[in-house]
Design a binder for these strands. Structure first.
Length: 636
RNA sequence: GGGCCCAUAGUUCAGUUUGGAUAGAAUGGCUGCCUGCGGAGCAGUUGGUCGAGGGUUCAAAUCCCUCUGGACCCGCCA
């Protein structure tokens, strides 16, 4: 926590100074100044005191700075101070300069000895639910945002020693599944796509789902057929259920292929049909009724319905007058299960082995399968990754949960803005944009950009670039490298921005491998690797005191902020902070590489120190890249 | 109608939580830098009434109010 120690010490110095001037209860902020030549930390307290003391900020700053300096006399050994100087600026700021000789020495040592302190989780059990795409279509770029946010969060929480379980909820008995069943059973779509190379999820989504929805308008009798299929699905009609299960699991496996390609993994799949059969809903309903969380309306427009009266959101129907549960109601038992309000009724078996050789589990009704399995439920807190259109429902679920539990905030909704198509991209897909700036995607209407298609296109582009630079590269390395570059471009572009902002997806722009992009980060890492390889060092024991150039100090400072950045990321659930951190590190490194000789430096002490610095950068970069799911490449 | 989110350079975005010093990147345009540690790089240049108006403050992109423009949610659909 090197940089934080520096902040703490500066804070102590300010407090000390204020005390000596007999000033109490003054709040202030200690922040990084806009420009580096003002120092490393600035305090605004003099501005705040101006009125109270009837003096100018400038005057107060200089008096206070002098008192602050006495703080360092109280330290046992001044050489252990992280603060190099405290000076009052005429503007009124008190500026602190850090001792990056000392801070740098500590952070480099921590990095190289693998002694970074990232354990903020202390084995806290966390459940993350993400992806949860209906199993009737292939993933589009909008789904990928969800997948990548969820997986990045998983990686960060895992690294900070949280005990993380990743769930993927599969709605295998809903309307959207009934839609493709209509296609197969009534419109006679073949059970296999005519072109064997077509992925089954794409076949269902692109050919059948869209077509069926078009036909509903021309032939309303199909809607009746869908309704009857849905009833059979819910009532457990053996023939239909088993056919549906065959279809959805084929789609699901293809969806998982796309997710795995993105280096995403899960622990458990929860099928809606299993939850229905498990009796969880019945228990939940009973409980809500008993505790008077929901009430039966005896008059008015909702007569005969069981409703929840939300304080802020008004009346919400939970059970219809015909006794069936609404869409939202089905999420309640799942939420209760996650936070431990109801007991886990499931038995488990391994569904499939994943790309990282971990097991992906599913629930099962097979009585014999209840041997050793990980403990999935419950968690200390649960994070559900769903886009912001679901905010209202998530809020109501959270409110219902709070009726069961006195402890708040165990159930979190990680909200994000949807991915829209830029008008250029929409037009290129033949969609009439009506001169709008961007277009909502819709699986049902066929308005979307397929995830695999984008990855394939990126892959092709990365391959061209890689071949240009490495004419001698062999086929396997070329394929692997190109794929990793494609994934890094995709993943980075989906998390580098603020979660709440919509992403306007433009196919052309997303194909860029330059600038603030995933491949830029990988390139910086590869450069580090080549330097280390050529340096042929084993020990990395260069002395930080030879790193006195401005750029070197900036790098040491940035490295020292790593633990703090990760801490903020987990506290605020903001994956972009990691992306921004590693981008800045890559930028600083590229600059360093450009302006200073490393291997060619004539002073051996300086050269050794620089090589050590490169190694530290490389380590931090490697950790950060893996946190955001980008594979560090030694060559590209 | 109620709720929620957004608006910063031609474009895509940081910065807003916690007010502070000359508002930063990337991309596009223009221009330099490879017999040199890898040019997927670096540097320079171009480009801003921070949607508008008002308020609070010594100080507002940031806080408050009003307005405008855009998106989304508000069903006994999922």
């Amino acid at each position: 926590m090197s940089f934080r120690k520096f902040i703490n010490e500066a804070n102590e110095a300010i407090k000390f100074g204020l005390k000596r001037l007999d000033i109490q209860n003054e709040s202030y902020s200690l922040s990084e100044p806009a420009k580096e030549n003002f120092g490393d930390l600035s305090c605004n307290v003099a501005f705040l005191l101006a009125k109270r003391l009837q003096k100018s900020p400038s005057e107060i700053a200089s008096i206070l700075a002098e008192q602050c300096n006495h703080y360092f006399d109280t330290l046992v050994t001044k050489s252990q101070s992280y603060v190099l100087s405290v000076v009052a600026h005429e503007s009124g700021y008190i500026n602190f300069k850090g001792d990056f000789g000392l801070i740098g020495k500590e952070i480099i040592s921590d990095i190289l000895k693998n002694q970074l302190n990232l354990d903020t989780g202390k084995r806290t059990k966390v459940i993350i639910e993400h992806t949860s795409v209906n199993p009737n279509k292939a993933l589009h770029v909008g789904h990928l945002r969800n997948v990548v946010i969820g997986d990045t969060l998983y990686r960060i929480l895992k690294k900070t020693n949280h005990d993380v379980t990743v769930l993927n909820y599969v709605d295998d008995s809903g309307l959207q599944v009934a839609d493709i069943l209509v296609g197969f059973l009534f419109l006679r779509f073949p059970v296999e796509p005519s072109d064997k190379k077509t992925k089954f999820d794409q076949y269902c989504g692109n050919a059948i789902y869209v077509k069926v929805n078009e036909l509903y308008e021309k032939d309303p009798s199909l809607i009746e057929k869908r309704k009857s299929l849905l009833r059979k699905l819910e009532s457990g009609d053996t023939e239909i259920v088993s056919f549906a299960s065959e279809i959805t699991s084929k789609v699901l496996k293809d969806q998982l292929r796309t997710c795995w390609r993105m280096k995403v993994r899960y622990d458990l799949l929860n099928f809606e049909s299993h939850i229905i059969r498990s009796n969880l809903w019945a228990k939940t309903f009973e409980k809500m009724r008993k505790e008077k969380i929901i009430l039966k309306e005896s008059e008015g427009e909702n007569i005969g319905c069981w409703v929840f009266n939300s304080i802020e959101e008004g009346t919400k129907i939970i059970v219809r007058s015909d006794g069936t549960a609404t869409y939202m109601a089905k999420d309640i038992p799942y939420a209760l299960l996650k936070v431990g309000t109801i007991e886990d009724p499931f038995k488990y078996r391994v569904f499939i082995k994943q790309w990282d050789s971990t097991d992906l589990w599913i629930t099962t009704s097979d009585e014999s399968k209840n041997g050793d399995h990980p403990i999935f439920f419950p968690a200390e807190y649960s994070v559900t990754v769903i886009d912001n259109r679901q905010s209202r429902l998530q809020k109501i679920i959270k409110e219902i949960l709070s009726k069961f539990e006195s402890k708040p905030n165990k159930y979190l909704h990680l909200s994000y803005g949807p991915v829209l198509l830029s008008s250029r991209t929409a037009t290129s897909l033949g969609i009439n944009t009506d001169y709008q700036k961007s277009t909502q995607m819709s699986g049902r209407k066929g308005i979307y950009v397929d995830a695999d298609f984008v990855l394939d296109t990126l892959y092709g582009k990365a391959k061209d670039e890689t071949m240009k630079r490495n004419p001698e590269i062999n086929g396997n390395d070329l394929d692997r490298t190109s794929e990793e570059i494609a994934i890094s471009a995709m993943r980075y572009s989906l998390i580098k921005n603020d979660l709440e902002k919509e992403i306007k997806f433009d196919l052309n722009d997303s194909l860029s491998l330059d600038g603030n992009s995933g491949p830029y980060l990988q390139y910086a890492y590869a450069r580090c690797c080549r330097l280390i390889e050529k340096a042929n060092e084993k020990t990395f024991d260069g002395d930080v005191k030879y790193l006195s150039e401005k750029i070197e100090e900036r790098i040491l400072k940035h490295l020292s902020k790593f633990e703090m950045t990760i801490d903020n990321t987990t506290k605020n659930l903001e994956p972009k902070l990691v992306a921004q951190y590693v981008y800045e590190l890559a930028t600083l490194f590229n600059l360093f590489y450009e302006i200073l000789p490393i291997l060619k430096e004539s002073n051996p002490n300086t050269s050794k120190a620089r090589i050590t610095l490169v190694e530290a950068i490389r380590q931090i970069m490697r950790i950060n890249l893996s946190l955001i799911g980008i594979t560090p490449l030694e060559r590209m």
